[in-house]
Design a binder for these strands. Structure first.
Lengths: 204, 204, 204, 204
DNA sequence: AATGAATGAGCTTTCATTCAT
DNA sequence: AATGAATGAAAGCTCATTCAT
């Protein structure tokens, strides 16, 4: 059995993805140079293009992985909640506290929405679609169980995603509110009211 | 007296701004080349840089102009509404129908949010701030007049902007719903419910 | 008889040449923009190109005029000197004190020597040729009158010009010596010795 | 063992520097385009900017290298001369014959003096400073050893540099004298006389 | 698997010059 | 005589991608 190396045990592919998170969070997609990612990950251009078809594809992989991790985390956290509405309400809180703790995740997933020439734009969207789907699923369940009145859950789930993104974005860009989680209660209440639920009825 | 010229009588500066709308809508900020803009506007690079300090500054001028036009339009449209809540509700409808009619305006103002290395990003934000301010103002008035309960109007106005942007964005990118204005009633209802108003009580 | 205008009575051509001195002194030939010159001279591009064929030709005119003025000044100053050697020695002093008083003249005439793509280079040279000719003429006369031994006066006149230029240049670029004229005595002595004259024998 | 390749075996960096000598000699700094250098060196812009930070920095490297080579050559050549004055006299001859043989070196080092907007100018000066220092050092030694009378060696070394530069410059620009080295004896004599030495006393 | 020198199309920006008014 | 908007070639530089080793 080989001894554990002193420093970086992960392979080049992982080191590149890790470095990409840093650089994307700090610079945004277009300004994130392959060279800088490669330097930070202590690999080489050749290695980069051995592991990834292109800068674009690499970002797709990264975003996919990050959003899947986030969705799984939320999934796990709300599994035990008694009702669909309890679950979405819980999901909001998990999402907010996760972004509050992992600023870089928020920066990569939310600050890099479109604005580029190629197809990359669309690669930052799946995360939003996935998250909207998660919400919609619970809202549909809530309708099916009679917890809320029938309504356009597709639209509502999108509105929720938009609301959440905007609040997090404001925090990222202006630092308001100081602690992102301070916004959670009011955010949660407004979202619940928007589907006709009295916030007071839902305990966290 | 000479007859009105068949083609474009406007000066180069205007033609450049018009062309920029087209190119920005189609390509986004980074991918919008100065060359393409001057080609489309039938001017020259020299002319571009005679009229604008830089590509960045030119986009600032354009976004400023577009967002001011939009805000003024909404302002005028809701002026005669009886209450603050009627006004915001009316504003939503004007905004949605304007974006529905002027797809390119939506594309430029909503698709080009951040993601660049320079300072441009910030130049797409004022529009959102301006719009959020408009909403917040009415919500504050509604609170002051006892139309709605006291609540975090700063947060709520941001949530509304996020909801609206997300719905329009989805339409731009996926074509859902077919007619953007089809989403207006449900959108309006959900937003009003989020501040504790019964949508049925507000006639448009 | 028309009243004297309050401000600038000179015509555009003169104003342009005056402005060019300022800009050339400050920026050098390549970095001196036509735009800056016309701005400073309160004229226009059109006016500039009405009066001058090109930027290059305009500089030729300017350099010609400046060097002629300088040569005439020296000519006048040394006219009454008793011998050729007294005249060159006197010329050195006039040249040095003129440059010391009119820094901009030195900057334009000495800092803009060659280094450009077109033919401009050559347009800064006539001044040097003219001045070298002046010196050579006197040295030839000194030889003819038996004041100095026969020697290569063409070469010597060039060497003198080079020495003078280098000393002035050093002053322009490094500020050494503090007062340019402080260098005159030693400069004069060395130059006189180089043609076999004892400096002590020549009174100024 | 592979045979020596017919064409250019040196690496890109060297090829670029070699090409730059040609282009700078022919065009001067401002007119020397990176594209032309790259074309002549059979590389690419990318390669150019991989090896050098900027055109300016590349020229600094080149000038530094050329002037160091020249100074070393002179240093080696005069090492064995018996006295300081013999050394400077010898240095003059080495300098003149080197420029006579390597016209391009003279062109790059002497024709590109100042005249630009940026900082490049200053990068052509160190060579002159270095050379002036070399001369001054020997003159100081000559004074210390009582070979010449005490005098302003700083000024004199500058004058010598100016004289030399002017003579070489005239040759470069007008072709006079036909063989540069033809000017050496008279040049040497005049310079020695300028410090109070009888040229006849110094054998080469 | 990994390297990094090399590529070249592309970028934004500058500027002497022209010309309709 | 004068104006200044317009021109367009050319500049220096960047960067995702390739490929011989």
């Amino acid at each position: 059995m080989r001894a554990t190396p002193a420093i970086d045990t992960s392979d080049a592919r992982e080191r590149i993805l890790d470095a990409a998170v840093e650089v994307l969070a700090q610079r945004g997609y277009s300004a994130a140079g392959v060279q800088e990612i490669v330097d930070l990950s202590c690999t080489s251009k050749g290695s980069f293009y051995f592991h990834f078809q292109s800068k674009e594809k690499m970002v797709m992989v990264l975003v996919d992985r990050m959003s899947e991790k986030l969705v799984n985390k939320i999934h796990d956290a709300i599994r035990r909640q008694p009702t669909p509405v309890h679950r979405v309400a819980g999901g909001i809180e998990v999402l907010m506290s996760t972004f509050a703790r992992q600023r870089k995740v928020a920066q990569v997933l939310l600050l890099n929405i479109m604005g580029h020439g190629k197809a990359v734009d669309k690669k930052f969207l799946p995360m939003r679609d996935r998250f909207a789907g998660l919400i919609q699923q619970e809202l549909d369940a809530a309708v099916a169980q009679g917890q809320i009145a029938p309504q356009d859950t597709v639209l509502l789930s999108r509105m929720w995603v938009g609301s959440l993104q905007e609040v997090v974005l404001r925090w990222l860009l202006t630092g308001q509110p100081n602690h992102l989680t301070d916004a959670t209660p009011a955010l949660r209440s407004a979202l619940l009211r928007s589907i006709g639920i009295d916030p007071a009825a839902i305990q966290t």
